[in-house]
Every structure is written in structure tokens, then in C-alpha cells.
Design a protein around this nucleic acid. Structure first.
Lengths: 149, 149
DNA sequence: TAGAAACGTCAACATGGCTGACGCAGTTAT
DNA sequence: ATAACTGCGTCAGCCATGTTGACGTTTCTA
């Protein structure tokens, strides 16, 4: 593949991702939260409820970094932790009603941009876009969202 | 658009972008540099030579943040600054031979992943992917890489 | 019942952002 | 010519998000 073609993708990913996250960042800033909080909210909501160790693996950060984020989210009454009944050492995280509402509003802040971009790409483009992004991902992460390795 | 469809894109962007940047991050770490240095190298190389104020606008960071990055790149002999002959206040940045070599090796670290992902998406997918990513971008940034607003 | 596992927590540090304030060289307007 | 503005570097201090390493507690498991 030519360097030129690689650059075309690289810069579009850079600017595209920046704009995409920017939509949520504005909402987050008004609540005194950051992108790290959004990611936690997103994956807790996605799973319904999730063990701490799994969220840790998904986010790919250390437990110290996650603990700080979770403490702030729990202080803000957006996330709750309870014990795993099957193994009392494990914590299970869920969103509160307020947390779910915030997560949705963050998603909706990004939805318009996504919708527009998919529409521009045309009805047949959607599958190609999914395939492309899935192929960029690490196999480990593909498995995490329920795709074949 | 359904929340479900929006989430499908959101998480693929998150994991895909993370894997994509991870390729370069590994090379950068071995040189004691970070992602911020890569972005500067990329856009200087892309332009051939670029005024400081334009790089500033492209990266969307403050001059203080950029100055630190540029100082490190110049100390490492990867970037050179000279005066704009037309306006002595302005600085113009170019890469050294070494800088160009590093930038290329960073691009190549990402190229295989991009190539594979484009191949997976099929020959007709490429246009859709470009269109999609361009539509995600801020109009301002589209203009910056030579696209119509 | 000893050891391992799953946390939470404290401390220190790196990176890459930010704001504000100041200085200086060079350019432009009066 | 001189005053004002511009572009840019720099100092200082702060914030968000990540890192390592060490330690303690609770809970399971061999």
C-alpha cells in the first residue's frame, strides 16, 4: 500500500475521532467530568452490569486509574457497586438512573454526527465501515464486543 | 438512528482508534517520545514545511503545549525551525533527514493495520470509508486537508 | 488453616494538556 | 520615526489521566 493511501486514512481517523469525542467532551465538561468517566459509563451501560476486573480489561488501564474514576462516579451518584453474590471479593458495577440518563445524553451528543456520516457514506457503505473498523481493532477487543476473533 | 446503531459505531471507533495509535505508540516509546510528538512530525512532513501558527491551528493546542513538543523535537534533531523570509516574526518548521525517517517508520508501523482493514472492507468499501471519516470531521479540519468544507 | 485472589488505597511520578503573565523582535499604521 | 500590534518563546502553576510499587483487608480455595 502506498504511503499516500495510508496517510489519507491516518489523518481522517485523527480528525474524525477528535470531532467524534469532542461532541461528548463538551457535555462532560459542563458536568465536571472527563473522557475517562465517559468510557466507564459507556461500558457499564453496555453490559447492564459488569465486574470490576472486566471493566479493567476492557479499558486497558490500571486498577489505580480506574478506582479514581469510579470513586468520582460513585460520589456523583452515577455508578453503584455491589458484591458479586457468587464471589464476595468481586465487585459488580451498575449505573444509577441518573447515570443511565447521562450516558444516554452523551451518546445522543455523538449520534447526530454518526448518523450524518453514515448517511453520507450511503446505504451500502455501512457494512464496509463496520468491517473496516472491526479489522483495525485488536482481536482481543473484537471478542470483547461479541465478534469473532 | 437507533441508539444501538450509534453504539456499534462508537465502540468500533474507540477500539479501532486505540489499536491504530497503539502501533505508533510502541515505536515512539522506544525513542522516548509520545503521541504529541508524532502528531507534530506527521503534519510537518505532510506539509513539507509549515508555519508555526498553522501547525498550532491544525493540532488545536496552545502554543505553550506545542512549544514544549517542538523544543524536544529540535533537541532530538528531528525538526528545524527557520525564519519566514517574508515576515521575520514567523517561524517555519521542517523535518531533518532523521525526522523524515522517523515519521516514515511511524507511518509504516500503522500501515499494515490500515492495509489489512481496507482489504477486509473490499474494493468498493474504500470510498465509503473515506466519505464516512470525512463526514465525521469538523468542516474546518476538512478544509485543512484540502477537502471542500 | 495457610495461601492466593480481588480489590481499595496511599504515594510518587510522567505526559500532555491548560491559563496567565511577560518579553522581545519584527511589522504595520499614523 | 515612533507607537502599537503581532508572532512567538518562556516562566510558572495547575489539571486530568495515566503509570509503578507497596500495603492492607476481605474472601475464597486447596
Amino acid at each position: 500500500m502506498s504511503d499516500f493511501a495510508a496517510r489519507a486514512i491516518a489523518e481522517r481517523l485523527f480528525f474524525g475521532y477528535r470531532a467524534f469525542t469532542g461532541d461528548a467532551d463538551r457535555v462532560l465538561a459542563s458536568r465536571g467530568l472527563g473522557r475517562a468517566h465517559h468510557r466507564a459509563l459507556y461500558f457499564i451501560e453496555r453490559a447492564g452490569s459488569i465486574p470490576v476486573h472486566e471493566l479493567l480489561a476492557t479499558l486497558g488501564i490500571t486498577k489505580q486509574a480506574l478506582t479514581r474514576v469510579l470513586r468520582e462516579l460513585m460520589d456523583a451518584q452515577l455508578v453503584e457497586r455491589r458484591q458479586d453474590p457468587a464471589d464476595g471479593r468481586r465487585g459488580i458495577l451498575t449505573l444509577t438512573e441518573t447515570g443511565r440518563a447521562l450516558e444516554l445524553s452523551l451518546l445522543h451528543a455523538q449520534r447526530a454526527r454518526i448518523e450524518l456520516a453514515l448517511a453520507q457514506a450511503g446505504p451500502n457503505g455501512r457494512e464496509a465501515i463496520h468491517t473496516f473498523l472491526e479489522a483495525l481493532m485488536e482481536p482481543e477487543d473484537r471478542a470483547r464486543i461479541g465478534l469473532a476473533l
